[in-house]
Lab assay of single mutants.
Amino acid sequence: KRRTSFTPQALEILNAHFEKNTHPSGQEMTEIAEKLNYDREVVRVWFCNKRQALK
């Protein structure tokens, strides 16, 4: 499976959402994914990886 390359704009939006809520609901992740035109699973993994990076 290929790595997803996030655009700077997408990272800005993802980081803004992460600052508000580090554990978004499934519905929220779906909405973010649709807004950014990414697969929901990609957004889920991004949040998971971001949380791990802060440990």
Rank of each mutant, 00 (worst) to 15 (best):
K35P: 01
L11V: 14
F18G: 01
E19R: 11
G26T: 14
N37M: 15
S5H: 05
E41G: 07
H17F: 11
I13E: 05
C48S: 14
Y38F: 08
W46L: 00
R2E: 15
L14E: 00
A10Y: 01
V45Q: 04
L14P: 01
Y38E: 14
N15C: 10
E12M: 06
N37K: 11
A10M: 06
V45F: 05
N21M: 03
Q9A: 12
V42T: 13
K35M: 11
K50W: 01
N37P: 06
R40I: 12
Q52W: 05
W46P: 01
E41P: 01
E28P: 00
A16G: 11
I13Y: 13
L11D: 02
D39T: 12
L14N: 00
L14F: 01
E34Q: 07
A33D: 02
A33G: 05
Q27M: 03
F47H: 00
E41K: 13
Y38C: 13
K35L: 12
Q27I: 15
L14T: 00
I32W: 01
F18A: 03
K50V: 02
N21I: 04
V42C: 07
V42G: 11
Q9C: 04
E34V: 07
N49Y: 06
L36S: 02
N21D: 08
K50F: 00
F6H: 05
R51Y: 09
V42W: 08
R2N: 15
P8V: 13
N21P: 00
H23C: 13
E12G: 09
A16N: 13
E31W: 08
T30P: 02
P24A: 03
N21E: 12
T30A: 11
V43E: 01
A16F: 09
R40P: 12
A10N: 09
H17T: 13
S25M: 04
E34C: 15
S25C: 06
V45G: 14
R51V: 07
E28A: 08
R40T: 12
R40C: 10
H17C: 10
A10H: 03
R3K: 12
L54V: 09
R51K: 12
A53K: 07
S5M: 08
N21G: 05
E31T: 09
T7A: 06
K35G: 10
T4E: 14
I13D: 03
L11E: 12
A53Y: 12
V45W: 11
L54H: 08
V43T: 02
Q27A: 11
Q52N: 13
P24H: 01
K20M: 12
Q27H: 15
N49W: 04
D39Q: 08
K55L: 05
I32P: 01
R2D: 15
N21Y: 04
Q52P: 06
H23V: 10
L36R: 00
R51W: 05
H17I: 12
T30E: 05
N15H: 10
C48F: 03
N37V: 03
E34W: 06
E31F: 02
A16E: 13
F6P: 14
T22N: 14
T30Q: 09
R3F: 14
F6Y: 07
E19Y: 06
T22E: 09
T7D: 03
N37Q: 11
I13K: 07
G26Q: 03
A33W: 00
L36C: 10
R51I: 06
R51M: 04
S25K: 12
A53E: 09
D39A: 10
K50Y: 00
F6Q: 05
D39Y: 03
Q9N: 08
E28R: 07
N15P: 04
P8E: 10
A33T: 03
V42A: 14
R40H: 10
R40D: 15
Q52M: 07
R3N: 15
K55Q: 03
R44F: 09
R51L: 13
F6S: 03
Q27S: 10
E31S: 15
P8F: 08
R2Y: 15
F6K: 04
L11T: 05
V45Y: 02
L54G: 12
A10Q: 09
S25W: 00
D39C: 09
W46F: 03
E19N: 10
V45M: 14
N37C: 05
R51C: 04
R44C: 10
C48Y: 11
A16D: 15
T22L: 12
Q9I: 11
V45R: 13
E28T: 10
E31Y: 03
L54D: 07
K20H: 05
N49G: 08
P8W: 03
A10K: 02
T4Y: 08
I13S: 05
I32V: 05
R44M: 10
Q9T: 09
L36M: 07
Q27C: 10
T7C: 10
E12S: 12
L36A: 09
R40A: 13
R44Q: 14
A16P: 01
K20F: 03
Q52F: 07
K20A: 10
W46N: 01
K35Y: 10
F18T: 00
R44E: 13
F6I: 15
Y38K: 08
Q9L: 05
T4C: 11
L14W: 00
R3Q: 10
Q27W: 08
A33V: 05
H17G: 04
T4D: 10
C48W: 13
H23P: 00
V43W: 00
E31V: 07
N37W: 03
K50P: 00
R3W: 05
T22F: 06
R44L: 06
Q52R: 11
C48L: 15
R2I: 11
I13A: 12
N49K: 13
S5D: 11
Y38H: 07
N37E: 10
Q52S: 07
A10G: 10
G26Y: 05
F47T: 01
Y38P: 00
P24E: 00
D39S: 11
V45E: 07
E41R: 09
R44Y: 14
E34T: 12
T30R: 09
T22V: 15
A10L: 03
R3P: 13
F18D: 02
L11W: 03
Y38A: 13
R2Q: 13
A53C: 06
N15M: 08
K20I: 05
V42Q: 09
Q9G: 11
N37I: 04
N37S: 11
E31N: 05
L54F: 06
L36E: 01
C48Q: 15
I13C: 09
H17D: 08
V42D: 12
S5Q: 15
A33H: 01
R40L: 14
K20W: 04
K35I: 07
I32M: 05
E12C: 05
E28N: 04
T22G: 13
A16V: 10
V42I: 09
K20Y: 06
V43Y: 00
L36Y: 02
A10R: 01
K35R: 11
E19S: 15
L54K: 08
E41H: 05
V42N: 10
R51A: 09
K1E: 02
K35N: 05
F47P: 01
C48I: 03
N15T: 06
H17L: 12
N37G: 15
S25F: 03
P8C: 12
F47V: 01
E34H: 15
I13V: 11
P8A: 13
P8D: 14
E34L: 12
L14R: 00
T7G: 12
L54S: 10
I13R: 08
T4F: 04
K20V: 08
E19M: 12
Q9Y: 10
H23E: 15
V43H: 00
H23T: 10
P24S: 02
V42L: 14
K35S: 11
S5F: 11
R40S: 11
T30I: 10
V42H: 04
Q9F: 07
F47E: 01
I32H: 01
L11S: 05
T22Q: 15
E28L: 12
E19G: 08
Y38I: 13
E12F: 15
E19C: 10
Q52L: 12
R3S: 13
E19T: 10
K35Q: 09
A16H: 14
N15L: 08
K50Q: 09
A53T: 08
A33Y: 01
F18P: 00
V42S: 14
L54R: 09
N37L: 05
V45T: 14
P24F: 00
H17W: 13
Q9M: 11
N37D: 11
R51N: 10
A53Q: 14
E41M: 03
K50I: 00
T7R: 04
N49R: 08
A53L: 10
V43L: 06
Q9D: 09
L14A: 00
E34I: 15
E31A: 09
F6G: 04
L14G: 00
E41F: 01
R3Y: 07
L54W: 04
Q27G: 11
E28Q: 07
A16S: 08
R3D: 14
I32C: 15
K55S: 15
G26R: 11
D39L: 02
V45D: 15
A53N: 14
G26M: 10
K50C: 02
E34S: 11
R51S: 07
T7S: 11
T30N: 07
S5P: 11
A33R: 01
E19V: 09
N37T: 05
K35D: 08
H17A: 12
A53M: 14
F6L: 15
Q9P: 12
K55N: 07
D39I: 02
G26N: 11
H23I: 07
F6N: 05
L54T: 06
E12V: 04
E28K: 10
R2S: 15
T4A: 10
Q52H: 13
G26A: 14
E28S: 04
N21H: 07
P24V: 04
D39H: 09
N15Q: 05
K55A: 15
N15D: 09
E34A: 13
K35C: 07
P24I: 06
L11Y: 04
F47I: 01
F47A: 01
T4N: 10
S25Q: 04
D39M: 03
I13F: 09
V43I: 06
H23D: 13
R3G: 11
F6A: 04
K50H: 03
E41W: 04
P8R: 08
R40E: 13
A33E: 01
K35F: 07
E31L: 05
T4G: 10
H17M: 12
G26C: 12
E31G: 11
N15F: 02
P8T: 15
P8Y: 02
G26L: 11
N49T: 06
L14Y: 01
Y38N: 03
Q52A: 12
K20G: 08
V43G: 00
Q27Y: 04
V45P: 02
I32L: 08
P8L: 11
R44I: 08
R40M: 13
Q27L: 14
E34M: 05
N21C: 12
K1C: 15
F6D: 05
T4H: 12
P24M: 04
A53I: 09
K55V: 04
F18H: 02
Y38L: 13
N37A: 11
R40N: 13
R44W: 14
G26P: 12
Y38D: 08
A16W: 07
E41Q: 06
L14H: 01
Q27R: 13
K50T: 06
K35V: 09
C48E: 15
E19F: 05
N15E: 12
Y38V: 14
P24Q: 01
Q27K: 15
Y38G: 06
W46V: 00
V45K: 08
V42F: 10
E19K: 08
K50M: 07
N49E: 15
P8H: 07
